[in-house]
Amino acid sequence: MALTVSHLVGGYSQIPVLKDISFEVRPGELVGLIGLNGAGKSTTINHIIGLLTPMKGKIALNDVTLATDPQAYKAQIAYIPETPILYEELTLKEHLEMTMLAYGLDQKAAWERANDLLKIFRLDNKLDWFPANFSKGMKQKVMIVCAFITNAKLFIIDEPFLGLDPLAVHDLLHLIKKAKENGAGVLMSTHVLDTAEKACDRFVLLHSGEVQTQGTFAEIKANYPDAGDSLNDIYLSLTGVTRDE
């Protein structure tokens, strides 16, 4: 069992945003975290990566928690944020070297993996570039490369498709598939529901800080037979949004 979120209550102030959230991300599966803006997706992710402390409940990754062993907990996670976070004074090569040092990776093996990823995302001739030279999509690709050179047990990917071209989306989905085959769990927050429907193994639908429903697409569809035939239709129905809104 990779990630277990149990009865999580939390937020940014005394008034909780998350109200008794529970779900799992198992090894070898991609779980889609979906919900309207303000539903609690980012708050959930911020608790999992340790930027926020739960008011109640427990978050464990392979039976390790931030409270018991923060270093061992964080070493298992690779995080790709919605907005790329790069250091303006570091080149692409230096970002990769910093990631390798932070995760204690074997340099030779890590660079072999990095070079393969750089070619996939067409960044192999840009090792000496600084972030100021990159477009938003290219910055996202740098974050993806940095994440996937690690040996993370859990990949957390926040809204990855918004700035990527179709080829990069295809390449990212292939990397996720390979990570799953290697036993990693993946938690992905996204609004691109047609892609999520095809790619994700299970879904957790948040609404107003609560888990509205969760399960495979087939399970959710069976539980809500009148909500629609696509994930998008079911999503809109369960959140009370009509197509005319």
Score class of each variant (00 low, 15 high):
residue 128 D to E: 15
residue 11 G to P: 04
residue 77 I to Q: 02
residue 106 D to R: 12
residue 23 F to H: 02
residue 203 F to Y: 07
residue 12 Y to T: 00
residue 199 A to G: 02
residue 167 L to H: 09
residue 73 Y to G: 09
residue 166 P to R: 05
residue 82 E to I: 01
residue 138 M to A: 06
residue 73 Y to W: 08
residue 170 H to E: 15
residue 87 Y to I: 12
residue 152 A to L: 06
residue 95 H to E: 05
residue 118 L to D: 09
residue 109 A to S: 14
residue 16 P to S: 06
residue 55 M to K: 11
residue 123 L to F: 09
residue 90 L to E: 02
residue 126 K to S: 15
residue 117 L to V: 12
residue 191 H to N: 13
residue 205 L to D: 08
residue 140 Q to H: 14
residue 225 P to D: 07
residue 113 R to Q: 14
residue 135 S to P: 01
residue 63 D to K: 05
residue 128 D to V: 12
residue 137 G to I: 08
residue 85 I to F: 11
residue 169 V to G: 00
residue 181 E to K: 10
residue 193 L to Q: 03
residue 79 Y to C: 03
residue 230 S to M: 03
residue 44 T to E: 04
residue 161 F to G: 04
residue 127 L to P: 10
residue 120 I to L: 15
residue 167 L to C: 01
residue 241 V to F: 00
residue 50 G to H: 08
residue 125 N to K: 15
residue 86 L to P: 05
residue 79 Y to H: 11
residue 94 E to I: 02
residue 144 I to N: 07
residue 25 V to T: 07
residue 32 G to F: 01
residue 13 S to N: 10
residue 52 L to I: 10
residue 73 Y to N: 03
residue 88 E to A: 14
residue 22 S to Q: 12
residue 144 I to Y: 07
residue 50 G to F: 10
residue 212 Q to I: 04
residue 162 L to K: 11
residue 144 I to C: 08
residue 89 E to P: 00
residue 99 T to D: 13
residue 128 D to W: 11
residue 212 Q to P: 00
residue 198 K to S: 12
residue 170 H to A: 14
residue 230 S to C: 08
residue 215 G to S: 08
residue 151 N to L: 10
residue 151 N to M: 05
residue 163 G to F: 04
residue 87 Y to G: 06
residue 84 P to H: 12
residue 55 M to D: 10
residue 208 S to Q: 14
residue 185 G to F: 00
residue 51 L to Q: 13
residue 173 L to T: 06
residue 170 H to N: 15
residue 107 Q to N: 11
residue 148 F to Y: 08
residue 207 H to M: 04
residue 180 K to E: 08
residue 200 C to P: 08
